[in-house]
Structure formats: structure tokens, C-alpha cells
């Protein structure tokens, strides 16, 4: 009689799970240490007076109370940021879509055009910012020189209280190539038979766009919309490099103000509370977008 086989300590499934967790462990530890840890720390710091170089002191809700009752820059920087979001995001989505439609044609050399429109989005943001400082230069910059040729005296752009934010938005729109590529991929995923069916039904070009392209593209547009809103609320680098928040704080965006409080004025506790307010605001807006998405975003899988 054969000796009974010893029972394995772990079943195959358990061993597989253990291996999986072991492989996940380095990432998990990194995530805990470098993401969750700082997030929790920043939440706690929001209730403290912490100057980085001196011990933190518990102040309860004082930072939040000051933000809402005694800090004009909080409202102003949020206002500047909302202006940026409200102007940039619609233009960004529209321009990316129009470019994608344009570059979705079967034309000779189309790959070259696609590359050309995509290139600005991979230019390092600081290099792009320096380039745009020159483009926006009021005396001899490309834009004003061109405007002057058609008899228009261009604005001061970055030196103007009125035009500084539009100037930064203009520069940001220059980098719409990344979104354009995503929309282009979405467009190429629209089944051809839907267009053919619409055509057989007598739909003209506009009707095909309105009733086939847009609904089929809506998940892609929704994705871009959500990401653009989140990214726009965090606008920082261009303003930091091109204007430093000026002139007269007309481009002092929320993140720039947060950075100033944290690293220039060493008010890390206050900056942490600002970060959490932004987080809650962006989270709320994102949830609202998801809630409203059911009204205009079409998911084929949900319909079947």
C-alpha cells in the first residue's frame, strides 16, 4: 500500500494569491509611504500651524476659518483659477475634437500633420513657456506683429491685467495635441457600418456627425472633460514661469498661491488646508460630472 501523500500546506489558489501579493508588495509599500502617507500627513497638517523649520502646533480649524474669513487671496486665486477652468476647458475639448475630425481624413501626408499638431504637447512645459513669452511679447512678438499687419494694435498680453489670463489659456491650448490624439483614436473606433446605415437612412453629413459621431465619441469626450477640469484646477507651471502670478496677481492661480504659502512663506499647515479644500472642490465637481454624464454620454455596452 502506497504511503499517503502529505497534504500540501497551501492550495494552488492560495499559493497563487500569495505570489500575487508578494509581487504587489513593493508597489504597495511605495504607495503607502509616498502617496497615502503624505496624503494623511497633509490632512493632519491642515489643522496645524507648521512652518517647516519649527515644531508643528495644533490649531484646530483655525487655518480653514482664516481661509474663508480673513484671506482675500484665497477667493481671488480661486476666482482666477475658475476663470481659467471655465475658459480653457470648453476651448480645449472643442479644439481637440475639431483637430481630430480634421486629421481623421484619408489624405496624403496626414501622418505628418498629426505629428505636427501633437508635437507641442510633448514640448517640456518650461521650454514652451519661454517660447510663448516671446510669442506674446507686445512690441515684436509673433502675435502682435501679425495683428499689426492687419491694422490691429495687440494687447500687452502678459503685462496686462485683462489679457494675462487669456494669454496663458492661449498657450495651454497650443498643447491640445494630446487630447486630439485621444479623440482621434475614439473617432477611428466608431464602427463604419453605423455611418453606412445612417447614410442609407438619408442622413446628411451634419446629421451623421450629430447622431453617430458625437454619441459614439461621448465617452472619449467625457474622459477628456474630466481630466481637463482636474488638470486646469492645478494650473501652476506656466504662471510660475511666465508671470510669477502677476501683473498685480491677475494670474495668481490657486496652486501658485498654495506653493507661495508653503515654500516662500513657510506656512505649510495653511497650504495643506488649501490643498484639501481644492481636493474636495475638484472631487465634488468630478462627481457632479459623473452624475450628469448619464444624460449625454452613450455607452454601447449599457444599451445592449
Amino acid at each position: 500500500m502506497a504511503a499517503a501523500q502529505p497534504k500540501p500546506r497551501f492550495t494552488n489558489a492560495a499559493r497563487e494569491a500569495l505570489t500575487c501579493y508578494l509581487f504587489l508588495l513593493p508597489w504597495g509599500l511605495g504607495f503607502l509611504a509616498f502617496v497615502i502617507g503624505p496624503v494623511v500627513a497633509s490632512f493632519v497638517l491642515g489643522f496645524m500651524d507648521y512652518e517647516i523649520v519649527t515644531p508643528a502646533r495644533w490649531v484646530g480649524l483655525a487655518n480653514y476659518i482664516e481661509l474663508f474669513t480673513d484671506d482675500a487671496r484665497f477667493g481671488m486665486s480661486m476666482g482666477n483659477t475658475l476663470y481659467y477652468v471655465l475658459v480653457f476647458v470648453p476651448f480645449h475639448v472643442i479644439i481637440a475634437t475639431l483637430l481630430a475630425l480634421l486629421l481623421n481624413q484619408k489624405a496624403r501626408g496626414i501622418a505628418v500633420y498629426r505629428t505636427l499638431f501633437y508635437v507641442p504637447s510633448i514640448v517640456p512645459i518650461v521650454a514652451g513657456a519661454i517660447l510663448w513669452v516671446w510669442i506674446l511679447q507686445p512690441e515684436w512678438g509673433l502675435i502682435n506683429s501679425t495683428l499689426r499687419m492687419v491694422g490691429i494694435e495687440g494687447p500687452l498680453w502678459l503685462a496686462s491685467l485683462t489679457w494675462s489670463k487669456p494669454a496663458l489659456i492661449l498657450m495651454a491650448l497650443w498643447g491640445s495635441g494630446a487630447a486630439m490624439i485621444i479623440v482621434l483614436a475614439g473617432l477611428q473606433g466608431v464602427p463604419q457600418h453605423l455611418y453606412e446605415a445612417a447614410e442609407i437612412d438619408g442622413a446628411n453629413r451634419w446629421q451623421r456627425f450629430q447622431h453617430v459621431t458625437i454619441p459614439m465619441l461621448s465617452p472619449t469626450l467625457f474622459f477628456i472633460l474630466v481630466l481637463s477640469v482636474i488638470a486646469s484646477f492645478q494650473v501652476f507651471t506656466t504662471a510660475y514661469v511666465m508671470t510669477g502670478g502677476g501683473p498685480a496677481e491677475s494670474t495668481l492661480f490657486y496652486m501658485l498661491y498654495l506653493y507661495r504659502r508653503a515654500f516662500v512663506l513657510l506656512d505649510m499647515g495653511y497650504a495643506a488646508s488649501m490643498a484639501w479644500i481644492l481636493f474636495v472642490a475638484v472631487l465634488a465637481l468630478t462627481l457632479i460630472q459623473f452624475k450628469l454624464a448619464s444624460r449625454w454620454v452613450y455607452y454601447e455596452a449599457e444599451q445592449s
Partner: peptide, 13 residues
């Protein structure tokens, strides 16, 4: 201000 700033901005950077 507009004229002077425009002139001065030309030399920024």
C-alpha cells in the same frame, strides 16, 4: 503705462 510697459516687456528675458 501701456506704451512704457510694451516697450519694457520687449526686453524681458
Amino acid at each position: 503705462h501701456a506704451a512704457a510697459s510694451s516697450f519694457m516687456e520687449g526686453f524681458a528675458g
